[in-house]
Structure formats: structure tokens, C-alpha cells
């Protein structure tokens, strides 16, 4: 077993983990942060995307031990406690989800994209989110949601 500690959604968390434990399993099963789903076994789908030291990563595609000492934000840490953040509100407003399974990854990947590019074009949004799959074919409204969130976030500055 390996000892790891990390800041997760603003709270210091630690634990003993097997080296083979994936980060997503640590988040879901050890910390109870089940807002981050597991969608695939191939690293394609992006549903499990979280922010690791501010950058998007697929949490099924790294070991929990590799996140030792890092700062992690999951979908459950993107807004104030118990409330939705700006991007989540925009997804609600624009009906940017159907079944909702891909949504935590979409929103987290969008947060990563908008941190780097606050005013992306439609093409840049599609390119920026192409590591996140929506099987309800809902990309149109997802793009609209990110555009609205970008506008809201720029206006708030």
C-alpha cells in the first residue's frame, strides 16, 4: 500500500492505496465523489475528466499514486458548496445534456478550455472538447452551453 495525499475540491484528503488503484476509483470509492463517472475502458470517452493542478486529465487514465501531492477539482468542486458553477448553469440553460452521463466530463473539459481561451470560436470549442464523447448526439447544445458560459465568465470579469 502507498500513502497519498492531495487537495480535492479544496479539502485536504489522504489515504492508503494499492498502486494499481486508478485515480477515478480513489475519487469515487474512497472519497465518495461519485459525480465523476466511468464511461469507458479505453481512455476515449472523457466522462471521468477532472482538473489536476488546473489541467484536464482523464482520471481513469492515471494511477491514484500519480496524483500524490496534487490539487484536484472534480465536477463537484466547480461551483460554490451545494450550488452550480457558471458552466453548469449554462449547460442547464442551453439544455446541454440529454442522458447526462458525459456531462461531468464535458463541463470539466470546458472549464479547462475556457481557462486557456476565454473567448473560443465554435470550431475551437469543438476541437477543445473532442476528447469527450456524447452518445446522445447532443454536441450542438453542448457547444451553445460553452459559448454562453464563456460570455457569462467574460462579463463577470
Amino acid at each position: 500500500m502507498m500513502h497519498i495525499s492531495a487537495t480535492v475540491n479544496g479539502t485536504h484528503r489522504m489515504g492508503e492505496v494499492e498502486p494499481r488503484l486508478l485515480l477515478v476509483h480513489w475519487l469515487r470509492e474512497n472519497l465518495g465523489l461519485v459525480g465523476t463517472p466511468i464511461g469507458c475502458d479505453t481512455s476515449n470517452c472523457g466522462a471521468c475528466t477532472v482538473l489536476l493542478d488546473g489541467q484536464s486529465v482523464k482520471s481513469c487514465n492515471m494511477l491514484a499514486v500519480q496524483a500524490d501531492g496534487s490539487n484536484i477539482t472534480t465536477i463537484q468542486g466547480l461551483g460554490p458548496e451545494g450550488e452550480m458553477g457558471t458552466i453548469q448553469k449554462a449547460f442547464k440553460e442551453c439544455h446541454g445534456l440529454q442522458c447526462g452521463y458525459c456531462t461531468p466530463g464535458m463541463v470539466t473539459a470546458a472549464a479547462d478550455l475556457l481557462a486557456e481561451n476565454p473567448d473560443p470560436t465554435e470550431e475551437e470549442i469543438r476541437e477543445g472538447l473532442h476528447g469527450n464523447l456524447c452518445r446522445c448526439t447532443g454536441y450542438h447544445n453542448i457547444v451553445k452551453s460553452v459559448q454562453l458560459a464563456a460570455a457569462e465568465m467574460r462579463g463577470a470579469k
Binding site: R20, L63, V65, Q66
Partner: peptide, 26 residues
Amino acid sequence: VLGGGQSLIPVLRLRLNNPSLIVDVS
């Protein structure tokens, strides 16, 4: 050897390879 893991970890998860030791150089 494990670096960023974006190729090796899917291989481990699909159990296409079962190394006895992972040396993390990341």
C-alpha cells in the same frame, strides 16, 4: 517504465500486459 501513462495505463486496464513492477519516471 511508466511516464504519462496515456498508452500504458489502457494496456494495464485491458490486461493486455501484466508487469510485476511499474517504475514511474513522470
